[in-house]
Design a protein around this nucleic acid. Sequence first.
DNA 1: ACAGTATTGTGAAATAAATAACAGCTACGA
DNA 2: TCGTAGCTGTTATTTATTTCACAATACTGT
Lengths: 208, 208
Amino acid sequence: MLSPKNIERLSLYRRILTELKQDGSEFVYSSRLAELSGGNAAQVRRDLMATGYSGNPKLGYSINELILSIDDTLGKSKCCSAILVGVGNLGKALLAYFKNQGAGPAIKGIVDCDKSKIGKKFSGYLCYSIDEIPTLIEETSSRVAILCLPKNEVQEVANKLIKAGIKGFMNFAPIHLDIPDNIFVDYIDMAVSAEKVAYFACRINKNK
Amino acid sequence: MLSPKNIERLSLYRRILTELKQDGSEFVYSSRLAELSGGNAAQVRRDLMATGYSGNPKLGYSINELILSIDDTLGKSKCCSAILVGVGNLGKALLAYFKNQGAGPAIKGIVDCDKSKIGKKFSGYLCYSIDEIPTLIEETSSRVAILCLPKNEVQEVANKLIKAGIKGFMNFAPIHLDIPDNIFVDYIDMAVSAEKVAYFACRINKNK
DNA sequence: ACAGTATTGTGAAATAAATAACAGCTACGA
DNA sequence: TCGTAGCTGTTATTTATTTCACAATACTGT
């Protein structure tokens, strides 16, 4: 029912709300949330509507209550653990990144194909082999996998992960995964992103 | 005229085409490109149309010529250099990532706020201070900046970068930048992305 | 040389997403 | 207590994007 974009924005709003709360605010207007999130006030109201929470026509939204309501909507993601596959440069950076990260799924285990890494610890996590995936996933009850493998290894590993119960991927490898369409994949393609930025940076774009 | 999404897909197609070429193929059909990119054949044809190149109704597209045509369309991004700001875990990982990366803007210099990093080398790049930004940008003729700073430092640094001539950002910091709208920003928010994946992974989504 | 066939290029239709517009509320000040 | 200003909730509109559908096309095999 909610689209990926709705979910993204709700997650974003919650982060902003949490900061506003820390700054001591109690209420916030949709227009302010729009400013802080880079969106439009009408869209903010629409997104928030989807959580079932109603604001006050004079005061705006209660920050506390709104956070709870978004929590409730996204809620199930909290109980959702992740494993990280591929402990190269990027994998290590992501481990550190998500370790200091409150929201979203927590990384519960790491895996690599490289035999030399198996049994070693990274950011406090013991690295397991590909063959141990089913055990690791069962023990951590993970449903999400973060893929930071070289592109020629990803498809095969993804297949194993799906067999072991993974339902969603963040895929940093620059390749499209051929998988059943009840599995969710978010492609994060930094080369493509960089090229896009360069393209628009290198035109004189008067407005927009 | 071309939207960010068009550009993304063109960049993606080019990568796929380059691989097909290495595998020895000479021609490719839109349907095959759609399969490999995770899209739809009509959309592929539409995107390719925008490059001005015409395929052959029986053979499909000449891989060589198509690559050249996409090169030409995205072309200006090649002559576009980038600087990376913030050499933390993520910054270092991205340095390594883009070093082995043919397409898109090449990283030409790095900058950090942390005094202890200035003057040190990372992946072969000497780290400069914030104050040296104008010089660095001029010397490298960079128009793109990759932002891997903590969120409380980003806005200020972004302002300085814009003053020094930067026209496009890849922003990994989880905050919306308040900047003129002739500056392009691509927000890469991994916490939000992770939460989105968790959300969809944790629902039994029959199809889609 | 020509019929057959599978693909391209592209207008039209469908779908999705963002924005605008405004009625209905609710706190607040007089 | 009542009028008012300014916000929310939500419908309507617009805009953007994707998909469909099919005529035009160019190679292949005979």
